[in-house]
Amino acid sequence: MKEVWVFIEQEDGRIHPVSFELLGVGKRLADDLSGICVGILLGHQVSSLVDEVFSFGADKVYLIEHEVLSYYRHIPYAKALSFLAKKYGPEILLLGATPLGRDLAGGVATLLETGLTADVTELEIDKETGNLLMTRPAYGGNIMATIICPNHRPQMATVRPRIFPMPERKPGRRGELIVERVDLYEEEAGVRRIGFLPKEKTVNLEYAEVIVAGGKGLGGKEGFEKLRELARLLGGEIGASRLAVEAGWISYDHQVGQTGKTVRPKVYLAFGISGAIQHRAGMQNSDLIIAINSDPKAPIFNIADLGIIGDWKILCDALIEAIKRHKGN
C-alpha cells in the first residue's frame, strides 16, 4: 500500500496548524493513489498528540520519542525522519515550509538522495503516471512551474501555511499507531539551545478570519491608525503590502505576499494596495476580497470580488460609522 507521509511539526507539545492542512492534502493524494495518509510524529513525550493527528485524517502514525528530540535540532530530527523513510519507503513526504520544516527538509532529501520542491502551492497526482505534480511560483511569482520527481522516492515537497484549507476535525477518529525506536545521542546533535526569546506580540495574520490591509496608497503611518479602528470593530488583524512595510509605516510581521505571509481569511479588505503579483500571491486564496483603490486600472481589481474605485479614507470612515451604528442596535 502506497503511503503519503506528513511530517507533524510540533514544538513544546503544540502541533503547527500547517501539519493539519497537509494531512488534508495528504488524504486526498492518498485516495488518488489508493493508499493511506500517514503522520510522522517525532519528539519527547509527545504520544498524547497522536489522537489529534488521527482526528485530522491520518490513517496511521509513526511515532519516535526520545529525549534528544525534546526540542528541534537538525541532526537528530533528520536522522530519525530519514531512518523511518528508509525503513518504510513512503511514496510522498510533505513538510510545512516553516523555519523548522525548511531546515529539516533540505537535509532529509539529501540523506535520502531524492528531489525536494520548495514552497509548493498546488499538489496533484498525474493520472497517467501516478507521479506527484508539484506546482510552485518561480521568478518572483511571475510564472508557475510544475515540478516532478519521476525516478526517486519519496517525492518531497514543502508547503507554506495557509495554501491549503484546514480539514475537518473528527474527534474519536482512530488509526494504526506504530512506535519506532532509533538510537540518538546528545553529543551528535552538535547544537545546544541555551535560551529562547519569545516573539513579543505575535500578529496572528495567517489564521485571522478578517484582514484589513493597507498599502502605499494610505499615504502614511496615520493611515494604519484608521485601519486599526476598523480591524478592531471587525475582530480582525492588520495586513500590509511590502511598500507600506518598507516605508516604515508598519512592522514586517504584517507583510502579506510572497516575501511575507500567506493568508486565507474569510474577508480581505485591501485599502490603497495596487495588487502586484507578489502581493496577490499571498492573499488570492481569501474567501472574499474587497478592494478600494483610486486607480481603476489597479491589478487588485482583477481578483477582487468587490472593487471600489475611490478614495480609501472616505470609504474607511463611512464603514467605521456604519459598523458602529450596526453594532449599536
Binding site: T114, T117, A138, G141, M144, A145, I147, F301, I303, G307
Partner: peptide
C-alpha cells in the same frame, strides 16, 4: 531528481463587481 514538467503564467481570477 526533480524535473520541470511545464511552466505557465498564473491565471488571474475572473473579475468581480466594480463600483
Amino acid at each position: 531528481p526533480t524535473q520541470v514538467k511545464k511552466v505557465y503564467t498564473p491565471e488571474v481570477k475572473k473579475k468581480g463587481k466594480i463600483v
